[in-house]
């Protein structure tokens, strides 16, 4: 599946719910399916700043595809990062770098997050793309 197709799928899934409480419940569920980062990889260089909660994000290259793992001490944050990872997992670095994250606005996620959490979301996307840039450079070399 392309990134675009996964994003469309997520938009549809979130559109099924009537109110934001249900969407939060769904987000919490998604957080439970997050591919967890290994404990020993929860190091400072993998921490994302800009969140009231702590987030760790790691990425590796399998073949030419990227595989992400992450964790957070807050469960809703886990859901947010799970949504992002679902769209970017098993994609090539170049596909990730050429994609956009407009689907977040279409889900309506950003306007329903507090300012600090929205900042955290922006930092997560930055970190994901930073990993993609690094692995793209590795593939090119």
């Amino acid at each position: 599946m392309t990134i675009k197709a996964i994003q469309e799928e997520l938009i549809e899934e979130f559109a099924m719910f009537d109110d934001w409480m249900q969407r939060y419940e769904y987000m919490i569920d998604l957080g439970k399916s997050l591919p967890l980062i290994d404990k020993q990889n929860k190091t400072d260089d993998r921490v994302i700043k800009g969140c009231q909660s702590k987030v760790w994000l790691d990425a590796e290259l399998k073949g030419d595809k990227m595989v992400f793992s992450a964790d957070s001490d807050a469960i809703i944050t886990k859901g947010i990062i799970a949504i992002l990872i679902r769209t970017f997992n098993n994609q090539t670095p170049s596909a990730i770098l050429n994609s956009n994250t407009d689907f977040i606005d279409q889900i309506g996620l950003k306007e329903h997050l507090s300012a600090t959490r929205a900042n955290g979301l922006t930092s997560m996307i930055k970190k994901l793309k930073l990993y993609a840039t690094a692995y793209q450079a590795k593939l090119n070399s």
Binding site: M21, Y24, Q52, S53, D73, I75, I76, T77, R117
Partner: peptide
């Protein structure tokens, strides 16, 4: 077992 930020959000 629950992060305060999660409670505040809900």
């Amino acid at each position: 077992g629950i992060h305060p930020y999660d409670i505040g959000t809900i």
